[in-house]
């Protein structure tokens, strides 16, 4: 009961603070977010894709949408929307691949919305399911990287070791690979194989860094506040344990 109450209070505090920071975003002092090289390179890749006429590939992983892995996929969809809007004037719109049916449908929906906003036609080929198991998904994504003139790959979703196959394909095709996942072993694989890796909460910060709106900036502020609180609690707990109080 106590754990449940604490969890409910944390979620409630997130609700209140995100709404407050979003509403009063103009009046609050500017919050300096640290530079994340992956997002700088992504912005350059988006610009390059528009100029060079090659396409961006966004991989949403094969996480189950009815479980906790859905959050990272939603973060990926948010980045897909930003990238799709930014490359709307490009000859080749971005292509999204997913390893889960519902995610593939949501990626099509996101790309369709972005196309409608930009006044360009949407093609069903741009949002696809490439396989229903992690390895078949990775194998299906390889052909997209090899055959479809991909200039940069953005991998944001739930991935395990199979993501190394996708990154290797990106390396062979001389395309940039930026990646983040919620899976800890997957992050170790990404660190070794991707050009730029998003570690931990950086994966969820894409919207804020790509200018997705005040709610994204607000949520990043709230995460920073909670992170500081957690650090304080952990250090205080360790000290109290050391002193024999706990």
């Amino acid at each position: 009961m106590t754990t449940s109450l604490i969890a409910a209070l944390v979620v409630l505090a997130f609700f209140i603070l995100i709404i407050l920071f979003s509403v009063f975003s103009q009046r609050l002092p500017a919050w300096n977010f640290r530079a994340i090289p992956a997002f700088d390179r992504l912005e350059r890749a988006v610009g390059l894709a528009v100029e060079a006429g090659n396409r961006l590939h966004l991989s949403l992983g094969s996480g189950d949408l009815t479980g906790t892995q859905s959050a990272v996929a939603f973060a990926g969809l948010s980045m897909l929307r930003r990238v799709a809007r930014a490359t709307s004037v490009s000859d080749k719109p971005p292509v999204a691949t997913a390893g889960e049916g519902a995610l593939a449908i949501l990626s099509q929906d996101t790309l369709r919305s972005a196309s409608r906003e930009s006044g360009v036609d949407f093609d069903l080929m741009n949002g696809r399911l490439t396989g229903a198991t992690p390895f078949s998904y990775a194998a299906g994504a390889l052909s997209v990287i090899h055959d479809e003139d991909v200039g940069a790959n953005l991998l944001v979703g739930s991935f395990a070791a199979e993501v190394a196959l996708i990154n290797e394909a990106g390396e062979r095709a001389h395309s940039l690979t930026l990646a983040g996942t919620d899976n800890v072993p997957g992050q170790a694989v990404l660190f070794a194989t991707a050009n730029e890796t998003l570690i931990g909460e950086e994966t969820f910060a894409g919207g804020a860094y790509l200018g997705a709106g005040p709610a994204h900036l607000a949520s990043l502020r709230v995460q920073d506040i909670f992170r500081l609180g957690l650090i304080f609690v952990i250090v205080a707990g360790a000290l109290l344990k050391l002193l024999g109080v706990l």
């Binding site: 944390v10 979620v11 997130f14 609700f15 995100i18 906790t68 959050a71 990272v72 939603f74 973060a75 919620d182 800890v184 992050q187 570690i199 931990g200 909460e201 950086e202 994966t203 969820f204 910060a205 919207g207 709610a215 994204h216 949520s219 990043l220 709230v222 995460q223 909670f226 992170r227 957690l230």
Partner: peptide, 16 residues
């Protein structure tokens, strides 16, 4: 440490 950061990210995404 990484999991705590991810958990905060998941809550923030869910609330958004």
């Amino acid at each position: 440490g990484i999991l705590l950061g991810i958990a905060l990210g998941i809550i923030a995404t869910g609330v958004r």
